[in-house]
Write a protein that binds this DNA or RNA. Structure first.
Lengths: 223, 223
DNA sequence: TTTTTATGAAAAATCGATTATTATTGGAAT
DNA sequence: ATTCCAATAATAATCGATTTTTCATAAAAA
């Protein structure tokens, strides 16, 4: 048996990291906002030390800006950065998908089908947004999982978080949503058929369409 | 005038982050070693809080492994990971170089020439290794600097740190060193002449030759 | 009016001590 | 001998308080 020594009891710092990460991605803080440590401490009912450790991790991860002697700020949203993030996603996830298609085994195929199935189910029902978001992230993670590169995976996750910060803040566009949902299933089809190029092109298209939605979060943003 | 509010007075935590980052890259800690926080505290004469904040940042950055309730460890060296890092460097720096060559202006050209010049000078003299390393990092950073992507730049820096952890630990190979030194100058030539493809190919070759040296650090490593 | 300088308040960073968790050791039981 | 368990030591994580630095305000000087 495989006893997971890894998933040992969590710490307050790790817990705060995860919570804040989610809250940042979900736009619970205003872009550009100064982080009031004592307010967070109050709000999350957590000690100063674990909170600061979490903030330090988030800054190193790119979800916060840290300035010496003047604490932490939420990064601003800028169209330029969204363009950057989007381009990088297309490039990196394209790379990863190619490798995933060439490495992926039967186990991957079944997990991919399962992930897509779950995504379809959640779409139909009127689940909470947070549930759909979780399933959606899981789908995209599964899609590129067998790319064989720890670092590529890591960067993709990081960019995904950055991208979602924009997207989740933007107003939804139902017509685009329908297309995006269909694309998930088409991606599975192409992946299973090992149609590498077509899959890559569709993934790029998928990301670019999401980008159009995400752009909606930059309205009234100055740079 | 441009008064740098950015480089404000540093904090103990930031200072420790930089110091430990260098020490980790320079192999001052054994791969796989458990980090004794109290020992570090003693050795660097620093308080517990700033030290822990630095360690948290380093873990998020990928230079340390953090496990809940059991502290920090130095990542092991593995040939597989070195392969991964190397592939990713070739891909990402190749991308960046293409964009740098298309974006880079006269200012970039002069900085690149200057960086190469400095590198040549340091080679000739018998400067400290640390001096050469700093100039070398600066050269590679300059080469891809105008790629126009914050995120690409960030990932490249991160991978460079990871790669150097292997390379600096490996025994030097003088013949390869000569070739690598020459390649730096050839890279400048090709960049100035805007020979994108050739420059990319040479950069890949350069990284792959460095890889052969870096491999020397994996001898006797189990996975 | 504008700039400068002092001053008090707010917030960030750090320290020293405490608590909680893990690792270790030395028997007892099988 | 090997496994199990308690007792203890070691270390990680956290807390509460202190120090340091920045920010905001207003008086003084130009």
């Amino acid at each position: 048996m495989d006893m997971k020594h890894t998933s040992s009891s969590t710490t307050a710092a790790s817990c705060m990291f995860e919570t804040l990460r989610q809250d940042l991605i979900n736009g619970r803080f205003a872009a550009g906002e100064k982080i009031s440590i004592s307010a967070l401490k109050e709000h999350y009912q957590v000690g100063l030390s674990p909170l600061r450790e979490a903030l330090n991790r988030l800054a190193a991860y790119g979800l916060l800006i840290q300035e010496n002697q003047r604490g932490f700020r939420v990064p601003k949203l800028s169209r330029n950065e969204l363009d950057d993030i989007t381009d990088m996603r297309c490039k990196l996830e394209g790379m990863a998908l190619e490798r995933a298609i060439s490495n992926g085994d039967a186990e991957w195929e079944s997990q991919l089908v399962a992930a897509a199935y779950r995504l379809n189910r959640v779409e139909h029902g009127q689940m909470e947004t947070s549930e759909w978001e979780a399933v959606h992230v899981h789908f995209h993670r599964t899609l590129v999982a067998p790319c064989g590169s720890e670092w590529l995976t890591r960067f993709i996750e990081q960019l995904h978080d950055q991208f979602d910060r924009y997207r989740r803040l933007a107003p939804p566009i139902p017509e685009s949503r329908t297309i995006l949902d269909a694309q998930h299933n088409e991606l599975v089809e192409l992946a299973l058929q090992r149609k590498t190029i077509e899959a890559q092109e569709l993934l790029t298209e998928h990301i670019r369409l999401s980008y159009k939605i995400a752009l909606g979060s930059c309205r009234g943003q100055h740079d």
